[in-house]
Design a protein around this nucleic acid. Sequence first.
DNA 1: CGTTCGATTGAGCTTTCTCAAGCACAGTGG
DNA 2: CCACTGTGCTTGAGAAAGCTCAATCGAACG
Lengths: 241, 241
Amino acid sequence: MTRHATPLPAGHPCLACDVRTIAVCGVLDCGDLARMRTLGRTMRLKAGQPIFHEGDQATRVFTVTSGTLKLYKLLADGRRQITGFMFPGDFMGISVDDEHAFTVEALDDAILCSFPRNRFDEFAGEHPQLERELYRLATHELAAAQRQMVLLGRKTAVERLASFFITLLDRTGKMVEDGREYIDLPMSRSDVADYLGLTKETVSRVLALLKDQRLIRLDTLNRIEILDGGRLVDMAEGVTD
Amino acid sequence: MTRHATPLPAGHPCLACDVRTIAVCGVLDCGDLARMRTLGRTMRLKAGQPIFHEGDQATRVFTVTSGTLKLYKLLADGRRQITGFMFPGDFMGISVDDEHAFTVEALDDAILCSFPRNRFDEFAGEHPQLERELYRLATHELAAAQRQMVLLGRKTAVERLASFFITLLDRTGKMVEDGREYIDLPMSRSDVADYLGLTKETVSRVLALLKDQRLIRLDTLNRIEILDGGRLVDMAEGVTD
DNA sequence: CGTTCGATTGAGCTTTCTCAAGCACAGTGG
DNA sequence: CCACTGTGCTTGAGAAAGCTCAATCGAACG
């Protein structure tokens, strides 16, 4: 569940699909990539389909080729916290005591590459540079998790939405058309709410508010134009000004 | 900022103090430990003293020998989120792009062992089993961070306090005296609040509530007796029953 | 063209926060 | 030895942010 610094070019096929995946690109040479390729296989997921559930045995690791996934944990009564989203190029290999710590589900149709965990670990053991890269990815994940703790523990609803947009801009890369910046929201309002520790109603209301203040524009339900990124950054950090 | 599975025996001296530290004990042999020892030096901290601040250059890594530390991030207007506490045996070496992602401050008088980051990394590079252990620790940290996201995003004040006590029981090990279980709270009510995404007043009120329900007893302000651990575990997970 | 499902909007409510006052204990000085 | 003072903790009352429940809207699809 870690992500490479550079985004995967749209449509960039994954390692198992006979090309290199972002998570290892740059740290393995051609021969090693070829060897690793033989370990993987392609998985195609329909929207809404889960890959594994919290508590399942972690027998495989994955990289995302295309599509978006959500990671979440549930409480006994069904309350849900989405702990992250996965985009193309992301790596999902982290587990504790061989058990998955969360459920992963596809938001839209997605393609993954999957490797048997033991063979992947073995392969990593033989490639220190890959192992170091995995560690680096884990530390970046951890830093992101800490920022999310600040968001969930201390930010207002408006600040949470602003932070969310800024993070998406950074992560999925700006989409610019005719000089306008857009972000795609492949997830539902409920998903956004469960990621930000809010209700879907509050998400809707805050969107309306940001729209009224001309900071964003709802191009379509799932496509948002960023009208004032600078102001959003300030908001995200709690700068009242 | 990761923690070994087994707790450090009280008073167990650290690597730099001529003995082994928890973070590496079990993965290094005597000769390697001796070499690592030569890299470290001991640091003594007074209560309230910071080790480094968010954004500082990360030139050293640390292990905790004795005492307790808090890790936190601030928003522009001073709102604070404590992202974790460090106890004896814990390792603080994770940073992103050589910058510390949070501030670390001693809660009480503490002793640390500190290593120059570059020498430590170099040493780790020569000891794959140490590198693997650091990765394992990071993944455990990440799982803990995700549990904290559930707490901050979806749990009620009562559930947060119950979760906090259960986590402390697991982490610092049960202290049993005369067949009674205790936990120490080396941090202030404000610190607890900033860790759980609440205010100090709410923390006080919830403590009073749990006390009234005979789930805990305040032995002293900073020492809590667990009267009904089972019930607390249920509460922590949102089991209403 | 009707149905469905997610998104939006509204009204009232609950939990937690804020602000303020009172309390308890440790340290200090008379 | 005891009053004094400071600091952190607790308790109370009112306010506010966000939640719940319910109604309405609107785009997608058969």
